[in-house]
Structures are given as structure tokens and as C-alpha cells.
Amino acid sequence: MGFKAYVARRLVNTVIIVFVTVTLQFFIFRIMPGNPLAHFISPNFPLESRRALMEMWGLDKPMHEQFITYLSNLLTGKLGISFISQRYVIDEVLERLPNTILLMGSSTILMIVLGIHLGVLAGSRRGSKSDLASVTFGLLTQGLPVFFLGLLLMLTFSYYLPVATGGLINFPVAGTVSRPPPADLPRYFMDVLWHLTLPMVTLVIISFGGYTLIVRSLMIDVMAQDYILTAKAKGLPERSIIYGHGLRSILPPISTMVGLSLSGIVGGAVITETIFSWHGIGRYLYEAVLQNDYPVMQGTFFLLSMVTIIANLVVDLIYGLLDPRIRY
């Protein structure tokens, strides 16, 4: 089978997966216990008001009609109207997406760079102090609960240190920008970076360990291969052996890991976004689940699944470029 036939087959599979995912997303949320009205149960919302809300949301219609409405909302790209805010889901997603991409993108890049670097270092020097330190630190940070680390950093750098140093060290308690933000662009940019620091550091500390441990393990296997021994015998510099021959050959599994983390860049980080009051997709999705806001859940999960499916497709296709042994 040639590359074109492979691509065609993968595309057909992808379309089927998308349809199945979209259908499951509709029914799973409706099977879940509870309904969106639960959050309008208050003396201010008597029974007739709640019934009017059900009509307004279209939940009084038969299931097949709701499913058709849902599909048409996906096809128009509006993704439906949120029950809670009465805004188009796509508008709310686009409002939050830049914040999430900024936080998750920057932290993912940093964690990959740091994780791979430490993993290569540890794997290529097995048994050394740097190996021991990388493994220990990686295991420790990976095991830390994110809410604990996030709160610890927030209270230390945003409250105790500012108070102790008279504001010399002072990170913001909440938000993506100052409230209100600076008017001029350079200061605005710096302000965003200032707000980004703590949530980004939290995510990097929590996540880089996973990369380190996997890359280390892959590197240990690779460094024991005959071709590495040959390279050493040829007298190649160590750097060239490690990065040119060792790292190169473990790129396919690393690219799979990176590909899988792409959906996380769009999906956000619920706990970190909540602790630092970061206006992102993760918290949006979490609140939607709590409030049974079906259109938001359906819309955001649709976007997330699309990103995951496409990322998997792309990773599969570029495998051949990274590993010449793979033939379609």
C-alpha cells in the first residue's frame, strides 16, 4: 500500500471516528444524572419559570429533534447557545482560547524541552549523580498534587513574600492581566507575562517529570545498541552520539507523546486555571460539567476531540518522516 492509499484510509477512519464521537457526546451527557434546571432551583425561580427555561433551551423537544439541532449547531460552527450565559459557545471558546493556548502552550513547550533534556542527560549517564537527581526530582514533582503545589506557590509568591519583602517580590493573586490592565502594549505584554509566571511554573514542575522518566528509559535502551557502540568506536564526539544518533532514534515515541499533549494545549488545565483564576477553557469546561450546560460540554468536547483526532492523524503521517524504517 502506498502513502496516498494509506492517507485515504486514515481519512475515512477519521470521519467515522468523528461521527461516532459526536454521537456519543450527545447521548452521554443526557444519560448523566441531573438536568440543567438543578442550578435554577431557587425561590426566585418558581415552577412556571423553570418550565419556561426548559422550553427556551429546547429540552422539552423529543430527543431526535434535539440531536438534529445539535448537529446543525456543529455544522454552522456556532456550537450552540450556552444555557447558562445565553452566548454562542464558539464566542465563549474563542474568548478563552488565547489564554489557554498561552498558558498550556508555553508550559508544554517548557516541560518538553526540560523533560527531554533531563531525560537525555540522565539516560546517557546512567548511574551518575545527574541521573539520580533527575529521576528523584522527576518522581517527586510528578507525584505532587497540582492543587497543593499551585496553592503553595500562590500563597508564597503572591501573599507571604510580598508582605515580607514590602512588595519587592510580588506576583498576582489572580487573573490573566491586571485589573484594569495597562493601556500601552509593551506594559500590557509584560503584565500578561507577570500573570503567566506562577501558573506556568506550576504546570511545568508538575509535568516535566513524566517526560524525563520516559525519555531516560528510551535513552538507556538506545545507548545499549550496537550502532551507538560503533559510533563510539569511530571516535565520534559524545554530543554527536547522544543527540545525533541516540535522541534521533527515539523521536517517534516522543512525537506521539507531544502529539497527545496537543489536545491538552487546547483543553486547558482545570485545577491550575481555577487556582490562579485563569480565564481559560479548562475552567469553562469544568463549570459546564457542574452545571449540566449541554451545549458548552458538547461544543468544547467536540473541539477537543477534533484536535486529538487530527493530532493523531498528523503524528501517524509524520512517523515515516521521522523513522525511515516505516513503510506504508
Binding site: 500562590m154 503572591s158 501573599y159 508582605v163 493573586v173 489572580a174
Partner: peptide, 20 residues
């Protein structure tokens, strides 16, 4: 009047103690 949002009670309590 500036209304500001804090997603957790920890953040809100730290903010008022800090003078934010």
C-alpha cells in the same frame, strides 16, 4: 467601583489581606 473575580476562596482571602 471595580468588581474583580477570584476563582477560589484562597485567592480572595489573600487579595483582601494583601490590599488588592
Amino acid at each position: 467601583i471595580l468588581f474583580v473575580y477570584h476563582a477560589t476562596p484562597e485567592a480572595a482571602v489573600a487579595a483582601i489581606r494583601k490590599g488588592d
